[in-house]
């Protein structure tokens, strides 16, 4: 017997770039009974006062990142407690950086502290946007169905090796050009720079996430055949060596490439 899931989208009026909010639109179509709470910047997040099954934050502008930090900073302890308690979080693209320790943007002339939940530091290069693909396996899905996604970002992230990644890239780069470790996974917290949107282009991962959110019901994917066919076509492309550029590889520290 399924129960009503509560999904909170944080600040969708400013965190809505790159079509990534369709992560939640799609999840909502997979679970039409889900209650989706859209929390504005000026409102107190639902997770502060009540139970939420999934907390989502999507891609932001640089200014939007600073606004999100300002609004989430007072709730740092609550976020940490929820992560510790096993609440599911999904922060995509540069939303993860909001929870880091520091965001540095020399070109826009700021260097600010993040919410500080994770020991991440982000450095933005406003004239060095990185575009590339990533493919890597995750523990919740069998190895035949790796997570696929795209990076399109100004930032590179550094973090201690002890902080587990969302995935380790078999192809493509991770948090930055010198590591294959991508994003952050702590308990049921997932932070990843991958766009696509992640849940739309990775039906196997989405099925696993649905099962995690509601273990007592059989997960159902919306528009399953289209989703699976799209995944298989993309997977075949991602396995094609001709489609990977040299800059999409993890580089040694000493010879980092200029991003096209």
């Amino acid at each position: 017997m399924s129960r009503v899931l509560t999904i909170e989208m944080l600040f969708p009026e400013v965190a809505n770039l790159h079509g990534d909010n369709f992560n939640i639109t799609y999840l909502g179509q997979c679970r039409p009974d889900a209650r989706i709470v859209r929390t504005r910047l000026t409102e107190t997040p639902a997770f502060v006062t009540g139970a939420v099954d999934l907390v989502y934050l999507g891609p932001l502008t640089e200014h939007g990142q600073l606004k999100a930090i300002e609004r989430l900073l007072p709730h740092k302890d609550r976020i940490e407690a929820l992560i510790e308690a096993g609440t599911t979080f999904l922060f995509t693209h540069n939303a993860l950086e909001v929870l880091g320790a520091r965001i540095r943007n020399d070109e826009m002339d700021y260097d600010v502290a993040g919410v500080g939940v994770f020991e991440l530091e982000s450095t933005l290069r406003m004239f060095g946007r990185y575009n590339g693909k990533v493919m890597g396996t995750v523990p919740t899905v069998d190895a035949a169905h790796p997570v696929l996604g795209y990076k399109s970002q100004f930032s590179m992230v550094t973090a201690p090796e002890s902080l587990p990644g969302f995935l380790t890239a078999d192809r493509g780069i991770g948090r930055n050009t010198t590591t294959a470790v991508e994003g952050v996974r702590r308990g049921n917290f997932i932070g990843t720079s991958l766009i696509g949107p992640l849940l739309v282009v990775n039906p196997h991962f989405t099925r696993a996430l649905l099962a995690q959110l509601d273990p007592d019901s059989e997960p159902t994917l919306a528009h399953e055949s289209f989703a699976l066919n799209a995944y298989e076509a993309r997977l075949a492309d991602f396995h094609d060596n001709r489609r990977w550029h040299p800059f999409e590889r993890v580089q040694h520290e000493s010879k980092q490439p200029n991003h096209p």
Partner: peptide, 12 residues
């Protein structure tokens, strides 16, 4: 030589 990043379709 690429794989089209289809994220743009969700901006449309």
């Amino acid at each position: 030589t690429e794989v089209e990043n289809t994220a743009w379709t969700y901006d449309a």
